[in-house]
Nucleic acid binder design. Structure first.
Length: 569
DNA sequence: GCCGTTTTCGGCCCGACTGTTTTCAGTCG
């Protein structure tokens, strides 16, 4: 019985209890227990008394112990007998929660999407207390979409939607300020919908503009404070716009940025101080409402430093305040170590990329075009590589306060050999090795290839170690833990590829790398100048793993970096 | 079901919205 299975079982019990219409606090107790177990960094074997973990008590602790000892839970078994499985997916239908589904099941025998549809079509639902004709129609409409619409959209897709919406909001003169909120602002890999918070004194005008200018599939709701729509783009995207007065903006933004658990923790803290947080401000013990100009001020009001959205997750972040100052910010970044030019499949020249790095205020950078094997990307032969070195040299001579290093993103070939000979590699300042082909090899073979690269004296870094594309492909599924141990053993860098398509390594693996103090490079893998801006996403993502600055290679000084690449030759 | 350095009982974050209702329950974020 592994930890994940136990966590899932506790969550399942919560679902079933919800479907029984149980006391919501009891339901959430099981969710909290699951969450507490997940947040605890220890493995199952290392925990001797589960009830010592906050959130796990006698009841949930007993379930956990029973699961470990017998592999089963009597509580869950009984629930499964009382409540049909088919009800669980129905909880996803908006408007249907545990109580209503329990009623539908008990009164009408609804136990699946099909039977729910039947009950609605025969107009039995509208006669139940608490239901009506409108609810019935809404359920029917939702059932059509059921299982069709994508549950969650990836960050790389939403990124562009957000940019467009930001442009639109900037153009509306009644909008005083605005920000995206929700899980997108927290840099989650995928989000269910987008949330925007808008400060305005004329919500009706803003609403009018939004409704007239957006490409809308459906208006879900449209009130004074909230416009809720489904946009008809390449995908169907749900977006909520919350309109508030300027004085309420900061607390509303904080509220809708979440996460839910973070908000709960903040409100508990406020309560301990005799205050009350709501979307509209912070109520003081004397009843006065305090507003804020910025989130920094808001946190300071509770004696807290600014907590970046990216780490507002479990609420645990409030126990890690000392570590906040170790989190990387854009100001700490002095370099980008992975990018492409027109030599391979990039859009801009060596010179243009170099200039763009200087524009961003960096101190150094590495040009890393593809190697010869990758023909589709116009990979460089040793001869073309040498020609590129001349350009890099010329660039450096013209820019004395900036250093461009000559690198490569060299393919690790399917047979485990490397794409350049040692006599080419030793001439390069910085060698990235990565896999772009034969993803479907067995893990053993993949690991052989990665090992060949990571133990090679001229290789400095492994790029996008798993090859995943978020919500598109899984990548080649290496044993990442093993890879991290190798990086430690051979003193190599692992990449956090900052492209929103990749974000590779993922948070979980970054945490492990940090424990072992493996250096991480946050790189954009830019194929054009504007993609150098992926650094912002990479940084926020690194924060989610609580990566310390010192371990992040591109916060190092150029001297530190030079020492590292020399050492590895 | 969980929790407690005022508490072993009575709270559990808070407010808006919706659709159902004549004052509110359920759902949602």
């Amino acid at each position: 019985m592994n930890k994940k299975t136990i966590i899932r079982t506790l969550e399942k019990i919560a679902l079933y209890l919800e479907l029984q219409g149980e006391n919501p606090f009891k339901v959430s107790a099981f969710r909290k227990a699951a969450n507490a177990l997940e947040t605890d960094e220890r493995s199952l074997d290392e925990i001797d008394d589960f009830t010592k973990i906050k959130g796990i008590g006698k009841g949930t602790g007993a379930v956990i112990v029973e699961l470990i000892q017998t592999g089963e839970s009597q509580v869950l078994k009984e629930l499964e007998q009382q409540v049909p499985k088919g009800l669980i997916p129905l909880l996803k239908i908006p408007g249907l929660g545990g109580k209503k589904l329990a009623k539908l099941y008990q009164e009408l025998g609804v136990d699946s999407a099909e039977s729910l549809k039947e009950a609605c079509e025969s107009k039995k639902v509208r006669n139940l207390p608490g239901f009506g004709a409108k609810t019935e129609e809404k359920i029917l409409k939702e059932l059509e979409q059921f299982g069709v619409r994508k549950e969650r959209l990836p960050i790389w897709y939403l990124e562009n939607v957000v940019k467009e919406l930001e442009q639109l909001l900037s153009s509306i003169k009644e909008v005083e300020r605005f920000s995206v909120a929700g899980s997108f602002r927290r840099v989650n890999e995928t989000s269910k919908d987008l949330d925007f918070v808008i400060a305005t004194e004329c919500p009706e005008k803003v609403r009018e503009q939004l409704l007239s200018q957006l490409k809308i599939k459906e208006i879900v709701g449209s009130g004074d404070t909230k416009v809720s729509v489904v946009l008809d783009l390449d995908e169907l995207v749900s977006v909520d716009f919350r309109m508030v007065k300027n004085v309420e903006y900061v607390t509303t933004l904080h509220h809708f940025t979440g996460s839910k658990d973070h908000n709960v923790r903040m409100r508990q803290l406020a309560k301990e101080q005799g205050k009350k947080i709501s979307e509209y401000g912070v109520e003081q013990p004397d009843g006065q409402i305090v507003a804020f100009q910025s989130e920094e001020e808001f946190f300071a009001h509770f004696g807290l430093p600014f907590i970046p959205p990216s780490v507002r997750e479990s609420g645990q972040e409030l126990e890690r305040l000392d570590e906040l100052k170790n989190l990387v910010t854009l100001n700490d970044i002095k370099a980008d170590l992975h990018m492409h030019t027109t030599y391979s499949d990039g859009a801009h020249t060596v010179h243009e990329m170099g200039e763009a790095l200087i524009q961003r205020g960096y101190r150094f950078g590495v040009i890393t075009d593809h190697s010869q094997y990758l023909k589709v990307a116009n990979g460089l032969t040793p001869e073309r590589l040498k020609k590129q070195w001349e350009e890099i040299k010329a660039f450096n001579q013209a820019h004395l306060n900036f250093t461009l290093f000559a690198g490569t993103e060299m393919d690790i070939l399917p047979d485990g050999s490397l794409d350049y000979d040692d006599d080419v590699l030793k001439e390069l300042d910085f060698v990235i090795a990565s896999i772009h082909t034969s993803f479907s090899q067995p893990q053993e073979k993949i690991m052989e290839r990665l090992f060949a690269a990571i133990q090679h004296p001229y290789v400095h870094m492994i790029a996008h170690p798993t090859g995943r594309i978020i919500a598109e492909r899984e990548g080649y599924q290496p044993d990442v833990k093993q890879l991290i141990y190798w990086a430690k053993e051979y003193g190599k860098i692992l990449e956090l590829n900052a492209s929103p398509y990749r974000l590779d390594l993922c948070v979980e693996h970054l945490k492990l790398a940090m424990e072992l103090e493996v250096p991480i490079a946050i790189n954009t893998d830019a194929h054009a100048i504007d993609q150098l801006a992926y650094m912002e996403i990479g940084i926020k993502y690194a924060q989610k793993a609580w990566l310390k600055k010192e371990l992040i290679v591109n916060t190092w000084s150029v001297e530190q970096f030079e020492e590292f690449i020399r050492k590895n030759k």
